[in-house]
Amino acid sequence: MSQKGLVIKEKIVSESPRDHLIRKERFPHIWCPGCGLGTVLKCYVEAIAASSIPEDKHVVISGIGCTGRIAGYVRLDSYHVTHGRPIAFAEGMKIVRPDLEVTVISGDGDLVTIGGNHFIHAIRRNVDINVFLVNNFIYGMTGNQMGSTTPLGAKSSTSPYGCPEPPFNLPLLAAALGAPFVARWTTLHTRQLAEAMKKAFQVKGFALIEIISPCPVGFGSYNELREGKDYIKLFLENCIVDHSADLNKAAISLRPGEPIILGNFIQREMPSYHDFELEVFKKAGWLK
């Protein structure tokens, strides 16, 4: 990330061209200073505005947690469901309404810890939904407890001696399950993230973007990342973009000298659940 070419225009505007996609009446939002979720929200609405899919066809579904609140701030059809269940909800919706562009935006604890079973099976089925998984390595909203993405040794309110368990390597998991699109970006990589989201909308089948997001007030306060700029420094110094990275090495340790590997790792064409279901309809005699 070079600073070269950065031009700051000294003009303050009261409205953004994307305001119609935000429920501004709900602001101020609940997120802490330095949190990456505002950036995720911005990238999402940018991607929607840039997508060729009508806005009315976009649906966003969230679970519980800080990220889960995104559904409530987007002016789209939006559903904020129970903890761990947005993927299952999205599957039901997408199966009966294949014309909708259904996106799940939720946190790591929600989607791969309590909701891990739905995560792996939705990928296996290759249901045509987008999952933007915001990974902040911690349960922020409930008070900074460790989860299945907390790096080994990282501290939290329930791992005072350091997290005793190794975390998920999510891109590897999703790739192994056969996801047709797997990417990972941080909230510092806004352009790449919004581009990846646009790609995800076009993917036929399950698209996963793991978004590494700062949590200075929560995770950071336990792990020497107390301010937003500490995260920016972390991302700037440790991130490596490698679209063809060996995903076996993509686990995130946050240890000095061990990189956070980013990229659009997997992009492949394969039949989706919808295709499988059409085959069933043919065999059942409903379709010729």
Binding site: Y79, R85, F89, E91, G92, M93, R97, L100
Partner: peptide, 15 residues
Amino acid sequence: IGSIVAVLGASAAGV
């Protein structure tokens, strides 16, 4: 759990 949640997703889509 997934079953009844998916049922609600479909219901939210109007069916």
